[in-house]
Each structure stands twice: as C-alpha cells, then as structure tokens.
Amino acid sequence: MIKLEKEVINVKRLIELIVNGMSYEIAVDTHRTLLEVLRDNLGFTGTKNGCDQGECGSCTVLIDGRAVHSCLTLAMDAQGKNIETIEGLSEGEKLHPIQQSFVDHGAIQCGFCTPGMIMSSKGLLDKNPSPTEDEIKRGISGNLCRCTGYVKIVDAIKAVEGR
C-alpha cells in the first residue's frame, strides 16, 4: 500500500535568515519550508498559507528582489538571502505607497490574498516602475483573488505614487 513516511534520521540545523533587513539565527528541521519557518518560528504571519502547492500565490515573498512562492522554497535554501515580507513594507504607521494605493482603491476585500498580491506588485514595480496594464496583469497572474475581480487591484497598482 502507499508508504507515507520514511524513517530518516533528522537533525536540526542552525541557519541564518535575513528577513526585512534583520538577521535571525534559528535552528530548523531541514524539511521545513520557508513559509513554515516565517510563520511558525519567526512569527511573520502576514505571509499567508493558502494552497501550499504554489497555485494561489498568497505565500509570495521577495527573495533577492524576485517574487517566489515561500511554500515551495526550503528554508535551508533561503539562508543568507535577502527575504522581504509584507511586514517590512510600512514604516510604523506610514503605509508603503503600494499598500496605501490598495487601501485607496478598495483593492482589498477579505484581505487574504493582499500580502501576496502586494509582494508580487512590489517585485514587478521594483523592476519596471511604469508597467502597462498588460504587464501588470502578467505580473500578478500568479496570485488568485476571489473577491475583487482584479479590476481594482490593477487600478491600484497603476496608480502607485512615485511611479
């Protein structure tokens, strides 16, 4: 029958993760994904756990400036790299221009997809500060939103201040 788990001797390893410019030294199991470590070990629960299979994009974080699924990235693989999560965007009470634009345009409804959506937008806008509508749609094509119908999200990204 289906064999689900194999016996493997597992030892925790000490790794250094750089999240939002802060360095964290933690002991993790080698089979932990970056998403699990961010949420469970470091408490960055802004990054959401949706499908856990790289389909929905709600776990999107930036690693070295590129948007990737943290649920498909091993925590071991992320050591020493520059990880940006949604928590790193605002400065205290002052929202990041992308966050502010999402609020202003009503691009948030239930809010579950928003952290991933904003990280994808940031990855896009950092590389291409004035994208066309098609480029925006392509840029966020890996993020599912079941509430807004995307129109307001695209409007919000188009209107980001300081573009």
């Binding site: 493997v8 199991d29 080698t30 089979h31 994904t33 071991m76």
Partner: peptide, 11 residues
C-alpha cells in the same frame, strides 16, 4: 501540508 523528512546537503 508539511514535507516528509529528508536529509539535506548543499554542495
């Protein structure tokens, strides 16, 4: 879903 346990090497 968590991953099954495995040994890890990064040569």
């Amino acid at each position: 879903m968590s991953l099954p346990k495995f040994d890890y090497q990064a040569p």
